[in-house]
Amino acid sequence: MAVFHRAGHEQVNVFDVDGIYLFKHYFEGEEVFARLKQYYNNQQYRFEVSPEDFDEIQAFLDTHGYGLVLVDALDLFVVVVRKYTAHPDNIFKKSVIQRSVDDYNCFLMVDQVAVVQAVYEGATRLTDTNLKNPF
């Protein structure tokens, strides 16, 4: 994963899934959200940015105190839960996208804090299973 070092910037993880950059974050300020609104998926509560627009959006957010970091190790951000069982409380809010594989629901989490919390609440890291990454 790329490392972001600029002081005063809030890191936002970005995931390349099927050729679209996905991220979930609450951005402060009307100007920021107004600029990003066209990329916001209201049904999935996430931003979806095409590769053609990514550099421009990244530069814009950089000037407003947000550092977009493209995650290259998606497996480390995926947790799994058996279908038809109780899911950790915050898993839907803190996941960027969900897909099913075999008898499991797989969730791509926004950051490592969300991964740790989901595991603490009963999810399993993808890397601790034999499942293939669906993302």
Results as ranks from 00 to 15, higher is better:
H87R: 13
E48Q: 15
Q44A: 15
Y104C: 00
N13K: 02
D103N: 13
G29H: 06
C106L: 02
S100I: 06
M1I: 08
L131M: 09
M1W: 02
V115F: 09
E10A: 08
N90W: 06
P88A: 02
F15D: 05
H9K: 03
K83F: 06
T124K: 15
V12S: 05
V101D: 00
V96S: 00
E52T: 03
V81S: 00
E48K: 11
R6L: 11
Q38E: 10
Q44L: 15
F135Y: 10
F47M: 08
D55R: 10
R6D: 03
F15E: 04
I20T: 12
D111L: 01
F23I: 03
V119K: 01
L76C: 11
T63I: 02
N90I: 02
I97T: 10
V116N: 13
F23V: 07
T129E: 14
F92I: 06
K132E: 15
P134M: 05
C106Y: 01
Y26C: 07
H9D: 10
R82H: 11
R82N: 03
N42P: 08
R46C: 12
G29Y: 08
T63W: 05
Y26A: 12
I91G: 11
F27T: 01
K37D: 14
N42G: 02
Y45S: 10
K37A: 13
T127P: 09
D103K: 11
F135S: 06
R82P: 15
Q98R: 12
P134G: 11
F4L: 10
L126N: 12
H64R: 14
K37M: 06
L108R: 03
Q44K: 15
D55Q: 15
V79P: 05
H87M: 15
P134N: 08
G122H: 03
